[in-house]
Design a protein around this nucleic acid. Structure first.
Lengths: 209, 209
DNA sequence: AATAATCTTAAACATTTGTTTAATTTTAAA
DNA sequence: TTTAAAATTAAACAAATGTTTAAGATTATT
């Protein structure tokens, strides 16, 4: 399928609305109006509303695996340094693509759309295997403890980030950070998430305090 | 409002369907059929589909705060023991009420329904404050480090559990646990979650390894 | 310039949705 | 037993939904 700028425009409008109101509550008319295109263009371009969602998933998840692999190619890095890179990469992407991450989270909870389930499953397996390899390497080098429950560990990373994104405004209120702009708050949360998760990973992976 | 057994039956049927298909994808006709009542009964009993959801939230979140407070009343427990009780209580409830927890997660992501936002916000504030008090107490007694980011720490607990519930079947596959029944898998995940999160909390709260 | 392919549009379509109505049955009270 | 209230039902309602159609405009190709 050829993807024109108009395709992208519709996809990103849809993403915005799906994240704000949920897939089912977003009508094709909403998307068309917000994107400034005719209602029928969405069926013409994507076939259906459901297919549109699937294209969005492909559009957003296309090169995740590759990026992660490139990140770990650098042989001069210690295992824990690589783990830290992975953590920061995940935080960065989750924050940068907040809207899509929210949609993804909902879709995983509902677990209905077979196409999406398949796409996500593929990414998950790949990521888990990469990190498992990385951890085994660290264990061989004596840097990491064994055994490690990789899925459980990744659940902590992904879950903590998700939860913080959900609770962003609540985090602001509870910590009395009203004076910060949204960008400043976001930067602060990123920094704190990074430190926090790295500390957690060290506790699970290494023997150091 | 008087709550008859039939109310409960409808509420729990709705919960089942909301968790399986999402709120929007579940029709009032679905609920009526599955619960074995006439379509009109749902409006007659609850007023509307939206109100039904709100009753469900009240039904499920009614006495959370009280239970948590009772848990911490016991003065003979050390601060870390209380924290461990809280962790196990949360895991137990999340696993036991998986369906409702999924619905809650989706509703928080969408963040649209004002009634639900209000209910959840109240619970969150109360829980965070209770745990903040508990941690401050631990700090005074010298058992805990300072400072501690309470919201971040709770996000790790809640997020990890959510993520594991989402990835349950994936966890089974990746760890080759096909020989376990669903109940056995659930028990295993509970146990591992408990150990894992307690380890994480110790790393953040105390100075011990 | 003529023709074909692609894009765009407004209108129509068939379903499905949550909710209401009005009639009927069941239950409770007098 | 009679009467009033509550519960239950099937049918109807209006609104909204995703999708299609068929006509027209635009662009590309020859």
């Amino acid at each position: 399928m050829v993807i024109s700028p108009k395709h992208i425009q519709i996809l990103e409008t849809a993403e915005k609305l799906f994240a704000a109101k949920g897939f089912e509550c977003t009508t094709v008319r909403d998307i068309a109006e917000e994107a400034g295109v005719n209602l029928a263009m969405i069926s013409y371009y994507f076939g259906s509303k459901a297919k549109l969602m699937e294209y969005l998933f492909e559009h957003r998840t296309g090169n995740i695996g590759m990026r992660v692999e490139n990140l770990l190619k650098n042989d001069s890095l210690a295992p824990m340094e690589k783990v830290e890179l992975l953590i920061d990469e995940h935080i960065e992407r989750a924050v940068q693509q907040q809207r899509f991450h929210k949609i993804m989270l909902c879709e995983q909870v509902i677990n209905k759309n077979p196409v999406i389930i398949k796409v996500l499953r593929k990414i998950k397996i790949r990521n888990t295997q990469i990190i498992e390899t990385l951890i085994k390497d660290g264990q061989k080098k004596g840097a990491f403890k064994k055994p490690v429950d990789v899925v459980l560990l990744l659940s902590t990373m992904i879950g903590t980030v998700n939860q913080m994104l959900i609770n962003k405004t609540y985090y602001r209120d509870f910590n009395k950070l009203d004076d910060l702009t949204d960008e400043q708050l976001q930067a602060l949360i990123k920094k704190r998430l990074s430190n926090h998760i790295k500390k957690l990973f060290k506790a699970i992976l290494t023997n150091e305090p």
